Computed example of a mutant assay.
Amino acid sequence: MDQVSLDQRREILMQVVAHEVSRGARLESQMDAMAVLVVGKPTNHILHLLITLFTCGLWVFVWLGMATSQERRVTFMIDAAGRLHVDGRLAAQQPIRPAA
C-alpha cells in the first residue's frame, strides 16, 4: 500500500473536517493527521431549569436524559496510507486522495 506524505494527510483531514463542519459539527482540536469534532447541540440548561421549576420537578428526568445524550466527541484520523478512521475504526477502505 502506498504511503502518503504528512502534508497530503493534513490536506485530506482538512477536507474531511470541512465537510463535517458544514454538517454542523464543531472542531475541538486538531493535530497533524487527527482531529476531534463535537457532534450534536449543547443542552440549554437555563430553559430546562425553568421548565423543571414550572413542572414542580417532573421535567428533571427529561433534562437529565437530554444532558447526557446531546453532544459527543468523534475522532477523525488519516493513516499513513491515506485511509480515514473514525473513532478508531476504519471508515474508508480505499485511500482518500487530496483534492486537486
Score class of each variant (00 low, 15 high):
Met77Glu: 02
Val36Met: 10
Ser5Phe: 09
Ile78Cys: 01
Pro42Asn: 12
Ala35Phe: 00
Glu28Tyr: 04
Ile51Pro: 00
Ala99Pro: 01
Ser22Met: 05
Ser22Cys: 00
Leu64Ile: 13
Asp79Arg: 09
Pro98Thr: 07
Met66Gln: 13
Ala100Ile: 06
Cys56Leu: 15
Val36His: 01
Met14Phe: 01
Arg23Pro: 00
Val74Ile: 13
Gly24Tyr: 13
Leu84Phe: 03
Ala100Asp: 06
Val38Trp: 01
Gln3Phe: 03
Leu27Asn: 06
Ala80Phe: 01
Leu6Gly: 07
Val38Tyr: 01
Leu6Thr: 10
Gly24Gln: 06
Asp32Gly: 14
Gln93Lys: 03
Leu50Arg: 00
Glu28Leu: 10
Ala81Cys: 06
Phe54His: 09
Met66Ile: 09
Arg72Gly: 04
Ile78Gly: 01
Ser22Asn: 08
Gly65Ala: 05
Leu53His: 00
Thr43Cys: 15
Arg10Lys: 14
Ser22Gln: 07
Ala100Tyr: 10
His45Cys: 09
Leu84Tyr: 08
Ala100Asn: 04
Val38Leu: 07
Asp7Trp: 09
Ser22Ala: 11
Leu27Thr: 12
Thr43Glu: 14
Ile12Leu: 09
Ala99Asp: 13
Gln93Cys: 00
Ile12Asn: 03
Met31Leu: 12
Ile12Tyr: 09
Val60Trp: 15
Trp59Ile: 02
Gln3Val: 08
Gln15Glu: 13
Gly88Thr: 10
Ala18Arg: 11
Phe54Lys: 06
Ala91Thr: 04
Val16Gln: 11
Ala81Thr: 05
Gly88Gln: 04
Ile12His: 05
Val4Leu: 06
Val36Cys: 03
Val62Trp: 15
Leu53Phe: 05
Cys56Ala: 15
Ala100Pro: 13
Gln8Ala: 15
Cys56Asn: 02
Thr75Arg: 05
Arg26Asn: 07
Pro95Trp: 07
Gly40Pro: 13
Thr68Ala: 14
Phe76His: 14
Ala81Met: 09
Glu71Pro: 01
Glu71Tyr: 03
Val17Lys: 05
Leu6Gln: 10
Gly24Phe: 15
Gln15Leu: 09
Ala99His: 12
Phe61Ala: 07
Ala35Thr: 02
Glu28Gly: 00
Ala67Thr: 15
Leu64Phe: 15
Thr75Gln: 06
Trp63Cys: 02
Asp2Lys: 11
Val16Thr: 04
His48Phe: 07
Cys56Gln: 08
His45Lys: 11
Ile96Met: 08
Ala67Leu: 12
Lys41Phe: 08
Met34Phe: 02
Pro42Met: 08
Gln8Pro: 03
Asp87Gln: 06
Val60Ser: 14
Ala100Phe: 12
Val16Ala: 10
Asp2Asn: 11
Gly65Gln: 03
